[in-house]
């Protein structure tokens, strides 16, 4: 009888031990905005280098897509953290979602336009006049370009607008002069392709003309932010630590190796160039801490969306920014 009791207590103790070891690590889901590629270098690196684990977290970093919207997942409880662009956040706030912004990953928006150097450089917004400009109808670039037009007093008669698709052929065939790209992904690919053909390119960055439309940021639900502040802190710190390390030039080879494990589509050289481009957007100056929330840019993004009638009423986005 005593022996049986002993076995029972030993079993109970072992079970408790196993349970405690698992309980020590909080499991959570983190939904990215897009597929695994160089523009999510920090997210990949934080997981690969065990920064989350060090913080006592087991984070499932999941790829995003247009159908996998992080905000929806936060509300439905499928994810605990996510990445969303400012316009998504503002739109969600407009419709009553309770979202908190924890960090702004891109200090400079990757949403830019590419054009060839054999065309006059766009030095002022006036220079846009007479050009054939590509726009993704319904996309952020449409909102941004409309804001630029409004700012410069350009009407639709002054320019030619071309509806853009995933296929770059119209740009290659010079049917479109100024083509919208994500600076650090498609921008790098297009630049590389054209340079191989002996053509040089410029990038037209709306931020240079005073339009700061905030891009990817880390978000969570208000509920999580209120109820689990410790976990939120730990997660944000570990993630930003991952980003700092990933953007550190001395770690470049290691970072590229970790990205390669997840992104088989691009080649090594392209990934390297994309990482350099990403660094320019995430940490444009050594003095800027990664994740810094540019409140003015957020406010401007909200104003732009309000002006463009993309939201019905002011949402006071600044109240949701909790750096």
């Amino acid at each position: 009888m005593k022996k049986k009791n002993l076995i029972f207590w030993m079993f109970l103790f072992a079970t408790a031990l196993v349970a405690t070891s698992h309980a020590g690590e909080t499991e959570l889901n983190y939904r990215l905005k897009w597929l695994f590629n160089t523009s999510v270098a920090g997210d990949i690196y934080a997981e690969a280098k065990g920064y989350f684990r060090e913080a006592g977290l087991k984070v499932n970093v999941r790829e995003g897509s247009p159908e996998k919207n992080a905000i929806n997942e936060l509300e439905l409880g499928h994810s605990d953290f996510g990445v969303a662009s400012a316009d998504q956040v503002i739109r969600a706030l407009d419709k009553g979602a309770k979202i908190i912004v924890l960090a702004q990953l891109f200090q400079v928006s990757p949403m830019q336009w590419i054009y060839r150097t054999d065309q006059p450089q766009i030095k002022t917004l006036e220079d846009l006049k007479g050009r054939n400009i590509g726009i993704t109808f319904g996309g952020n670039d449409e909102t941004v370009m409309n804001t630029l037009f409004a700012k410069a007093g350009i009407t639709k008669k002054d320019v030619k607008i071309f509806g853009v698709r995933f296929d770059f052929t119209p740009f290659f065939k010079r049917e479109v002069d100024v083509w919208p790209v994500y600076f650090n992904s498609q921008g790098v690919i297009l630049k590389d392709k054209l340079e191989k053909e002996g053509e040089k390119v410029y990038f037209f960055n709306p931020a240079d003309f005073g339009v700061n439309f905030v891009a990817n940021s880390v978000i969570t639900s208000e509920k999580t932010w209120k109820n689990r502040p410790d976990m939120v802190k730990k997660f944000t710190a570990a993630l930003l630590k991952g980003w700092e390390a990933a953007m550190e030039p001395s770690n470049e080879a290691d970072v590229l190796m970790e990205i390669k494990k997840k992104d088989k589509e691009s080649n090594d050289e392209l990934r390297r160039l994309q990482l350099i481009a990403t660094r320019e957007l995430i940490k444009p100056l050594a003095s800027i801490k990664i994740g810094t929330i540019d409140t003015d840019a957020w406010k401007q993004t909200e104003t732009i969306m309000l002006d463009e009638k993309q939201i019905k009423k002011p949402v006071h986005v600044e109240t949701m920014l909790k750096n």
Binding site: I71, Q88, G138, R165
Partner: peptide
């Protein structure tokens, strides 16, 4: 996927805006 007109295009625009 690729057109500039029609309801499929409008759905894509709405999806961009999560509407």
């Amino acid at each position: 996927i690729a057109a500039n007109a029609g309801i499929g295009y409008s759905i894509r625009v709405a999806l961009y805006q999560s509407d």
